[in-house]
Amino acid sequence: MIAFLTRTRHAGRFDLTDWLAWGWAILGTLVVAIPIAWAVISSLKTEAEINSFPPALVPRAAQTITVDGQAKPLSMWVRTMPDGSEQTVALLRRIGLSATVLDPSKPEETFRVPVAELRQLKEFHLQWSNYSEPMKQFNFLRYLWNTVFVTVVATVLTLLLNSMAAFALSKYRFAGRNAMFALILSTMMIPLSVIMVPAFMVIVGLNLADNLWGVILSTVSTPTGVFLLRQYMLTIPDDLIEAARVDAASEFRIYWRIVLPLCAPALAVLAIFSVIWRWNDFLWPLIVLSSPENYTLQIGLSSLQGQFNVQWHYILAMTVVTLLPVTVVFLFLQKYITEGVASSGVK
């Protein structure tokens, strides 16, 4: 039965270990999927529903009816009468343990019944306003715009600067080349958490505190990116570069017209990573950004949660908005991402 611990099986019979393997995989899938699915479902519930317990598995809302002679729509209830028969009623008002209801078919007659006899009728309902409301109420569009700005600008700069450095490191011999490469790689060993205090001082010194550029500039140079691109550029034949040099191309033109286009696959991998990194960044923007109009999505989202009155219906909707781009990127580029991680060991 331990056979499944050893290797990829040959095709053929389906034994106990296969059942265990499939069981583990499917159980794991549920463990991954359920909390996320629950957040997505909950993000479509009304405020009243989200605070009701026990929770319903589908988003619902109270069923209502418009009755002649009543200004507002009335909520629908089922009344279980003492003899066991049921009747659908609309609720007018509730005072203590008794409620005033009417029969929708005879709107003129109102009567009082004990609350205990009533059960509310709910229907399937998706509360899309959870998504539209925070856009107006919490400046969420601003956060979204800031995040997109940071992500796009930082990614473009990362691709450009890292590929330039990688070009120098892979296609030239010059004094200090190995030392510089070692220095760049050594920055992999220095996590942000160790240098966050002085890094913030540098930001203050450059007058970039509470500025999106402060978030962008410090993340542009990545050792991972330089390393990834350098390894790829080493596979481009030197002949091509010399041919371009003979063709009277300037060094920058060689970089721009020959090397960069040929690096497209590696650039794509780095671009995917960079977008995900910058989109998800939390600690550094948390340190650099202080005023709400500069918040990124992640900071905005976490600040919503800290507010006095936690409005989960909005928070969850915005959480879904935040995880959506990454999910879409992953859906389409899943193969490149997992292979990129497996081969380079970077995240």
């Binding site: 091509l240 041919a243 003979v246 063709d247 009277a248 020959i258």
Partner: peptide, 20 residues
């Protein structure tokens, strides 16, 4: 002088055609 300034042209063993 650089290759360009010497105004030479070269045919490489690998041809070194720009693949893109």
């Amino acid at each position: 002088l650089s290759p360009a300034q010497r105004q030479i042209a070269m045919v490489f063993q690998s041809y070194a055609l720009y693949p893109h």
